[in-house]
Amino acid sequence: MSRAKSTLEQWRILQAVVDHGGYAQAAEALNKSQSSLNHAVAKLQHQLGIELLEVRGRKAHLTPQGEVLLRRSRHLTQMVGELEQLAGNLEQGWEPSLTVGRELIYPMEHLVCALARFLPLCRGTRVTVLDSVITGTHELILENKVDIAICGGQPPKGYLAEPLCEIELILLCSPQHPLASLPAPLDDKELARHLQLVIKDTALKSPKELGWLKAEQRWTLSNFHEALAILKRGMGFCWLPLHLVEQELEMGELVRLQLQGSSARRVPLSLVIPNRDRQGPAARLLEQLILERHGKGQETVETEQTRDETND
């Protein structure tokens, strides 16, 4: 493998000379002698065999070749800085990555708001969000595949959960669907004659089928967007979260059906930490930010942030 002709320090010096408008200003900012900066840049140009800077009057200006190389060098020094920061974080036990399991009916807006606050504090931690359905979320928890889980209904036996919110599921179809013209409330026998759209359970080994599944014909889909597209074409009926279809209801693209004995369902959602023993500081911070989104855990979050700011 060939040896590099230049060093990161040389590129950092070049960046400082350009950013501060000259050798004297850069020397003051870096607390180095001006002659050492002149020598470093001159040596860099000699090693590369290309002129990077040219002096006009008392100010150094980038050459066209220098502009291209300087731009590339900034990516390089930034990556090295992030790498060094990550090494320091790993030494302190800060997790390099987190995985969050999200029950599909949980409003993504809540999670996005928590992640927006997490981003400036995350120290480069990568986040993966896994959407899951019904017992699929339980499976993620039981098999320790996620660091944080947002679970629908009752959590798996033996796991503690912090309640977050309740989601209302409503029965929907297109205004052009035959069910929309029938008098309310609908009889479940009438409903069973039509196509039902259901969202697939993401568990690899689902113990049983959940939900109203009496329809003679059923299409199974992987997400709500697919179900909405089919509903709007006048095909089938489906239970969907109210917060996802408010716009379609307001615009008249979908109508709400009243079913005798079950016109709506409320599903509680809660936060579960599958393994508290292995939970690190990044996971604790994100957990508290999610809880704060629902009016819980604010004091803990502020304490965590204050501690980080003090350490910095």
Rank of each mutant, 00 (worst) to 15 (best):
A4V: 11
K5Y: 08
L8P: 06
W11R: 07
Q15W: 11
Y23S: 08
A24P: 00
A27W: 05
E28Q: 15
A29D: 04
A29I: 07
S33M: 06
V41Y: 07
A42Y: 13
L44H: 07
H46Q: 15
Q47C: 06
Q47G: 07
L48H: 05
G49I: 03
G57E: 01
A60F: 08
H61I: 09
L76H: 15
L76V: 14
L86T: 13
G88F: 08
N89C: 14
Q92D: 10
G93V: 02
G93P: 01
W94I: 10
S97R: 14
G101D: 01
L104Y: 06
M108S: 13
V112R: 12
C113G: 10
L115T: 05
L115F: 06
R117G: 10
F118W: 04
P120S: 03
P120R: 04
L121F: 10
C122D: 14
G124Q: 03
G124T: 01
R126G: 08
T128S: 11
L130D: 05
V133Q: 01
V133Y: 00
V133F: 01
I141W: 07
N144M: 04
K145F: 03
K145I: 03
D147A: 04
A149S: 07
I150C: 03
I150F: 00
I150G: 00
K157I: 12
G158H: 06
C165K: 09
E166H: 07
E166W: 04
I167P: 00
L169H: 05
S174M: 01
P175R: 01
S181M: 09
A184F: 09
L186P: 02
D187A: 12
D188T: 12
K189F: 09
E190Q: 14
L195A: 05
L197N: 06
I199N: 00
K208W: 11
E209W: 12
L210R: 13
Q217A: 11
R218K: 14
N223A: 06
H225C: 10
L231G: 00
G236S: 03
W239R: 07
L242C: 05
Q247G: 09
L257C: 09
S262C: 11
S263R: 02
A264N: 11
V267L: 02
P268A: 07
V272L: 01
R284T: 13
E287P: 00
H294Y: 09
G295E: 03
K296R: 13
Q298S: 15
T300P: 04
E302A: 11
E304A: 15
E304K: 08
Q305L: 14
T306K: 15
